[in-house]
Design a protein around this nucleic acid. Structure first.
Lengths: 83, 83
DNA sequence: TTGTTTTATGCGCCAAAACCGATATTACAA
DNA sequence: TTGTAATATCGGTTTTGGCGCATAAAACAA
């Protein structure tokens, strides 16, 4: 489970995975995030010009968030495995 | 040190702090990221409609990256303190 | 204070996100 | 296969980022 998000594609994949994990359709997620289904579709397919506010809204709707960390550090998920 | 990035403002603040830590001017960072100084200025002041690709380019230039995690989890920085 | 660096703004331009409404296209189940 | 849900795409409109170019405003040092 890598939550690394260096490219729009990676972010799109993570959004899609998180959405399906919650058994939500794009339309349902769109409603919760206050955007359109089309917007979710574009984001999940790696739209590089997506707006920051849009992505933040979608992540929030999925109960996720961004963290900014130095490159190459161990991810929270990796460290969790210690416990 | 919180690397939490839930809002454009928080992201802007983190970018500014990381830039200053490296003793870079907005112009220098802009050059490295392949954008304009104006764009850095807007981003640091919390531009909510910044483009994803632009933010990713700036983070990369600062040797930073996004990670997507569940809300409320301990940050990598916190866990680092263990070591 | 004065001069220099740094950051914030300005206008015009182009491209594109996300909007509205709607439909084509898949994917999947009965 | 056939029907339905889900996802991708389209035309049109509005809005805005980021570009070039340029400058005003702030911050800071001599």
């Amino acid at each position: 489970m890598t939550d690394l998000a260096r490219t729009p594609q990676q972010i799109g994949n993570l959004v899609r995975r998180a959405r399906k994990k919650r058994d939500l359709s794009q339309t349902q997620l769109a409603d919760q995030a206050g955007v359109r289904q089309e917007t979710i579709s574009l984001m999940e397919t790696g739209n590089p010009a997506a707006r920051l506010e849009t992505i933040l809204a979608v992540l929030a709707a999925l109960d996720l968030e961004f963290r900014i960390v130095a490159r190459g550090k161990a991810s929270p998920a990796d460290i969790e495995d210690i416990f």
